[in-house]
């Protein structure tokens, strides 16, 4: 919380006794700024931490490293689109609460920050990156332990995450983080509302949605597509370059490297095979009669 400053409204001295209208307006304006800043300061208690993953560009063909069978992550990583919904949701919640702070936490190899900078440019205040060579080969549980350790240092009211990443899509990391932090959680949120110390969520289900609520601090995972992630403005991109970004390793988090990474995962890829590819069939250009071809095909299959 920012310290409270007193307004710089000086007592009028003799020579200023007959101050101009301009000076008066300035003084009142300063007072208003002070009031609004400090009213804001009193309500800026909500701290939201958003978990973001930085992934290989999904538009490029993915590849497994033949020596380890891990997904190759050597090229520049970008903000996972799935997580942009969590960032946007956090920004909206803080805006509607009238103040607060959105922080980011991410785990990535080689000190990668490109995706974090994108989320900072959207409007998050600060970011923490955990990067350590010993983390290569971490599974969902190892990843959750690391993120949870970083989050616990940040003392958030609310932790947000995407439901699942676009590269690994295990969909288990957010709930595991809540498990490690022994925090209540609500997954698959399509709408989130903060009401005092309660978080109210519309949780997507197979049949529709459920209303679910719990006390904060809590973790909520956000379904893709439920908000429209903002595009970073030029100003936002420039500001993001100066925002605080802390890089931590396992030692800084007090995590034993044998519990994470390849050893902690306790699983081994025994082989990778090529799937049987579907053969492409007939492709024709529509010249006004392609629909008849479809009817014939459906007829052969006895659908019509």
């Amino acid at each position: 919380m920012s310290p409270i400053f007193h307004p710089r409204v000086e007592l009028p001295s003799d020579q200023h006794r007959y101050s101009t209208l301009h000076q008066r307006v300035c003084e009142i304006f300063q007072l208003l700024i002070w009031i609004s800043n400090n009213l804001g300061a009193e309500s800026t208690t909500m701290k939201v931490v958003v978990c973001v993953k930085q992934i290989p560009d999904p538009a490029l063909p993915g590849e497994l490293d033949p020596s380890t069978n891990y997904l190759k992550r050597d090229d520049k990583l970008i903000l996972d689109e799935s997580d942009s919904y969590g960032v946007e949701m956090a920004l909206q919640l803080v805006e509607s609460a009238g103040g607060g702070e959105v922080s980011l936490v991410s785990m990535a190899p080689n000190g990668e920050v490109s995706g974090l900078r994108t989320a900072l440019a959207m409007g998050a205040e600060e970011a923490v990156l955990i990067s350590d060579d010993a983390l290569a080969g971490s599974d969902a549980l190892g990843t959750a332990r690391v993120l949870a350790a970083a989050i616990s240092k940040m003392s958030p009211d609310l932790v947000l995450a995407g439901v699942e990443s676009s590269d690994g899509y295990t969909g288990t990391v957010p709930e595991m983080i809540a498990g490690v932090l022994e925090m209540p959680s609500i997954t698959f949120a399509k709408q989130i509302e903060i009401d005092g110390n309660t978080v109210k969520v519309q949780r997507q289900t197979e049949a529709g949605y459920d209303d679910v609520e719990c006390a904060t601090p809590a973790l909520v995972s956000v379904t893709a597509g439920v908000v429209e992630p903002r595009y970073p403005s030029f100003k936002g991109i420039m500001a993001a370059k100066k925002k605080p970004l802390e890089e931590l390793d396992l030692a800084a988090l007090g995590i034993d490297s044998s519990t994470v990474g390849k050893n902690g995962a306790r699983q081994e890829t025994v082989r990778v095979t090529d799937a049987e590819e579907r053969q492409a069939g007939e492709v024709i250009e529509d010249e006004g009669d392609a629909h008849q071809k479809i009817v014939e095909f459906l007829g052969e299959l006895k659908i019509v």
Binding site: A178, G179, E182, M183, P184, S185, I186, T205, A207, G208, Y209, D210, D211, V212, E213, C214, A215, A218
Partner: peptide, 11 residues
């Protein structure tokens, strides 16, 4: 406390 989430309505 981790189990405090409650379903209050189904749609």
């Amino acid at each position: 406390a981790a189990g405090s989430a409650t379903v209050t309505g189904r749609h």
